[in-house]
């Protein structure tokens, strides 16, 4: 990372840390918490989709597995919320390894279809096991995070705000380290020229499993965090509207950039929350934005901005 990058990153972090004290409005914090969570999910998706070139449409299912893992472990198995948070990440990683098995042999559109089918399978299992998951109704009243003597939801969600920010920082640092490592170079080489990369001794199977598993961990943790924050687990976590929002974050931010989706998540979550009252028009607007961005800025806004500044 360049020196200028470090300065910008630290400045942004300082601004976000100061924000809840400058504007002590709980609703603003609520939107930021959601934005941080979506940023984690979208930037991790960028790892498999953008860097790995794996058209993985089961990513939203990893998030939902974190959501339901947290719900079931805390409410039915009596786990502590913190253990369930970590378990959300582990469960999502295991699911990713499972998804990787059919993905290994396939390419292109077949990967999209098999991962899409996997996500649908998980959704159907969740809906059909109503004794465990509450079926279509979902689970409500999930336990929240506590540190001894303090509930994170107090002081206008201040604890949740910093928890989500910390999650985003750790996840982003992990992603940057991953894509900068030899492993990151290997998965990009595989994306750009699979035959050449394989000929140079890069194992397609191992890299794909590792990429999917790495992209799933913080996604699952984010799912568990989301469930602990909203205190619900519902099948909406699998829904097309969340998928569309994440896709638009990814596309607006630009693939293979990590920071792009993070910035886009902040912008789009605000726009999305601001337009809740618009009802169907909101979904129509998001859909139009997606189509226009894909058409006009194939590299996303992040790369368009970078081209402008250089």
């Amino acid at each position: 990372m360049t020196r200028r990058g470090v300065v910008i990153g630290l400045a942004a972090l300082g601004l976000l840390a100061a924000l809840p004290f400058v504007f002590p409005v709980p609703y603003l914090r609520h939107i930021f918490i959601l934005a941080f969570i979506y940023a984690v999910v979208a930037s991790n998706w960028d790892l498999s989709l953008g860097y790995g070139g794996i058209f993985n449409f089961a990513h939203v299912a990893f998030f939902s597995i974190g959501v339901y893992g947290y719900g079931i472990l805390t409410k039915l198995a009596g786990w502590s919320p913190w253990a369930a948070l970590a378990a959300g990440g582990v469960l999502a990683t295991l699911a990713a390894v499972l998804v990787a098995i059919p993905v290994l042999r396939l390419s292109g559109i077949y990967i999209i279809l098999v991962t899409f089918a996997f996500a649908q399978l998980v959704l159907q299992l969740v809906v059909s096991q109503s004794g465990l998951t509450g079926g279509m109704m979902g689970m409500v009243g999930l336990p929240t995070f506590q540190i001894p003597g303090y509930n994170l939801a107090r002081d206008g969600k201040l604890g949740y705000y910093f928890g989500a920010l910390a999650l985003l920082v750790v996840s982003t640092a992990f992603l940057r380290a991953f894509v900068g490592s030899r492993l990151g170079l290997a998965i990009r080489a595989l994306r750009d020229d699979p035959d050449y990369a394989a000929a140079r001794g890069i194992s397609v199977a191992r890299q794909r499993i590792l990429t999917l598993a790495a992209s799933a961990f913080f996604t699952g943790v984010a799912g568990a965090y989301y469930a602990a924050y909203l205190r619900i687990a519902s099948p909406d976590a699998f829904g097309v509207s969340l998928l569309s929002l994440l896709l638009s974050i990814l596309l607006l931010g630009g693939l293979a950039s990590i920071y792009g989706p993070v910035v886009a998540a902040l912008v789009l979550t605000f726009l999305s929350e601001a337009s809740v009252d618009l009802g169907p028009w909101r979904h129509i607007a998001i859909a139009v934005v997606i189509i226009v961005v894909v058409r006009i800025w194939p590299g996303g806004l992040w790369s368009a901005l970078r081209r402008l500044s250089s």
Partner: peptide, 26 residues
């Protein structure tokens, strides 16, 4: 003509589906 047409088509047709569904709802 694009190299990633398979992925882009999934994204744009999903967006198209959202568009028509909400249009029908309206």
């Amino acid at each position: 003509g694009r190299k990633d047409v398979v992925l882009v088509a999934v994204i744009t047709t999903l967006a198209g589906a959202t568009l028509i569904e909400n249009g029908v709802l309206l």
